[in-house]
Amino acid sequence: MVVDSQLMSFFTAGSLIVIGIFAALFLDNLIKKIIGLAFLGDGVNLFIITMGYKPGGIVYIFLPDMTISNFAQTSAYPLPFALVLTNIVIGASTLAVILGLVLILNKRHGSLSASKILRDKGE
């Protein structure tokens, strides 16, 4: 079976994004929604990393015994990787904020059900 692993990785990222959006929109439990959002972020990160990947390439670390032109032609593209590092941190910190809000709301309503907590009171 010969399937391009980069393409497969894109599909994995896509399915994680779809699973995440589905969970965030259609599951009622707030914790499940948050887990879905974490998967959405993971999916996007995987998508970006896969974009920078070069089949048969080398890690983007310039070692003394390499020539510049050889390095430029074979190394993976490091810019997306730098973006992912930032995004992982952003994702973790927003997650912490959401969980804090959930804790407070749970104390007030005694429930984790989104439809109970976020019910619109007289739009």
Binding site: T50, Y53, V89, L99, V102
Partner: peptide, 28 residues
């Protein structure tokens, strides 16, 4: 996918921080 530095960060955040944060919320 040739991103060892990102892998290190993701290993810590994805396997420890995120599940533990969520688990603490669940327990509370």
């Amino acid at each position: 996918l040739l991103a060892p530095d990102v892998a290190l960060t993701q290993a810590i955040v994805g396997s420890a921080i995120v599940p533990v944060f969520i688990a603490i919320t669940v327990l509370k």
